[in-house]
Amino acid sequence: MPPLNQLVFERPIYVLEDRLADLEQQDDPSPEVRQEIRDLRVEITQKRREIFADLDAWQITQVARHPERPQTLDYLELVFDEFVELHGDRAYRDDPAMLTGLGTLDSLKVLFVGQHKGRNIKEREKHNYGMAHPEGYRKALGKMQMAAKFGLPIVCFIDTPGAYPGIEAEERGQAYNIAYNLREISKLETPIICVVIGEGGSGGALGIGIGDHIAILQYAYYSVISPEGCAGILWKDVKYRDKAAKALKFTSDNLQRLGVVDEVVEEPLGAAHRDHRQMARTLKASLMDAIRELSEFSSEELLERRYEKFRRLGVFDESADSDTAPDPDAGSDS
């Protein structure tokens, strides 16, 4: 495996794995060598467990962005039994950063929406590193509205550094299209499951992140701003990105504690990039559970739950609020 794809803190694991591979190649190994192989296997597992039990926020960011981490196209292959891609926003163009289509999970039919970052240089250029333009958000919403019409549940995979910050993106209304998605998706009468599979980059993530069940993979992150962006603004230097990553509390455990995600999907030992198939199996089971659970609710119940899910988010002090406004049915439960 090229060292380029080995994160610094993973090195001890790779060193042990290399030694194991060497030993395993020996023809007719001695009993001592065989014992060493057994010991090494145990040691590797222990080392993985040890390292991954204690990752800091910046290390988790690196895992979330790992070049070999499974991405949307991998999951479409491994999780879905069929994927019928649908293109275009009916207004400007097809945005390859945002993939949409019909898919099946065993017997369940769904609409799929998700960003794809690209697994090699060619793919990354084609998919613009998963950074959608306004037409990507419009494409997503259009297909989601179609799904709601036909009662198909929606599965959204979030994996983006952010909505694309470019001149044309501004000309075509990046802010408006994200805003419009937030408002319109909140009204869709069909179950929506959102999973942050890698990077949950701010408004670009939230633009397909309104749903009834919000999940995140264990080593993914979901943040109001990238650690680099935050460090640049508040520390005046990008080199403080590790400090910013910690301060932003954007790792899955924190998100669950803050009530922003409903589920943290466990990754294989050593994270998703070490075992795509295992990750896909776990994710598929989680998706199917969520869809089945949500299909129990009526449209009215779904919309009410979805409203309340976002309504209750926020932390503030209202002890000094003498409250001059009548508060009829407003969710004042925070």
Binding site: R183, G203, S223, V224
Partner: peptide, 25 residues
């Protein structure tokens, strides 16, 4: 925009306010 110092909770306010506007609309 969304306030960095409250992290993801700030981002979620975008969804919250927009959903309230959907009902108003």
């Amino acid at each position: 925009g969304a306030r960095m110092h409250e992290g993801i909770l700030s981002l979620m306010q975008m969804g919250k306010v927009s959903a309230a506007l959907a009902r108003f609309d």
